[in-house]
Design a protein around this nucleic acid. Structure first.
Lengths: 130, 130
DNA sequence: TTCAACCTTACAGCTAGTGGAAGGTCAAGT
DNA sequence: ACTTGACCTTCCACTAGCTGTAAGGTTGAA
């Protein structure tokens, strides 16, 4: 099948498929006219990458996961290690954003939001510690 | 003062100060030898930007906030609108990450994490709906 | 034959910087 | 007088993960 069909079957945009190929994450055969040709197995890999990305794994992590996926001698502990590391980062990001949310919420509370120029948000950004 | 001193006084790395100048967020006078010279007011702007960035505002938002900060005829409602919009995005990001966290946590639970190749994480990425 | 719908490569742009190279300036120490 | 080190300058390249666009080639059907 050509790249468009593979895109529809996998959920990855055609541009992204080419991009992943340029990174060495995917490979493709070529037809006589130079068009990329994909098999069902290729589409399976694309779906794998699509799902891994949607779980927030980086492309480097996706590469490692895909390698493990294709290695029958893998140890699941390896996979778990990668996922746990990712989870740690997700948790850190959540905490950071919750901090942000609390700070922003407080500032917004204190800003009248009317026609006057007085604004607690700007005061805080300006460094008025009040 | 020169850029290094302004950097220390504001918390913005010198490289970032130059970068912001290239974006038109900051301006600088030049000494005879071509070196940038900064006043206390300039440092105040840098601190403003530093704080706004640490609250997660984009550079575009920072630009708008800085303009409002310097406009005595501003309405605080304008500032509040920007902050509220940002908060909405922060909340959306948090929700998305919490979804991720839940999915990842479940998968990790189900992966034995031993020497065997069987792994629920890979099964899910491969599309085995189980 | 011509048209749409494919396909190709290559380059630019997005966010928000950071790193490094190559070179200029200046004050202090020897 | 000379050198050293700490500054400073500009410019280009790189990061992540794509997306947009241009310029052109191929194919099947009306």
């Amino acid at each position: 099948m050509q790249i468009k069909a593979a895109s529809l079957a996998s959920g990855l945009p055609a541009k992204t498929i080419r991009y992943y190929e340029s990174l060495g994450l995917l490979r493709s055969k070529r037809a006589a006219n130079g068009y990329r040709r994909y098999s069902e197995d290729d589409v399976e890999q694309m779906r794998f990458l699509h799902r891994a990305r949607s779980l927030g794994f980086s492309l480097d992590e996706c590469r490692d996961l895909l390698e493990l996926y294709q290695d029958p001698t893998r140890a699941s502990s390896e996979v778990r290690r990668i996922a746990e590391h990712h989870l740690v980062e997700v948790n850190a990001k959540i905490e950071q954003l919750q901090q942000l949310k609390a700070s922003l919420g407080e500032l917004i509370q204190q800003c009248p939001g009317n026609d006057s120029p007085d604004c607690a948000i700007l005061d805080t950004l300006a460094g008025d510690d009040r």
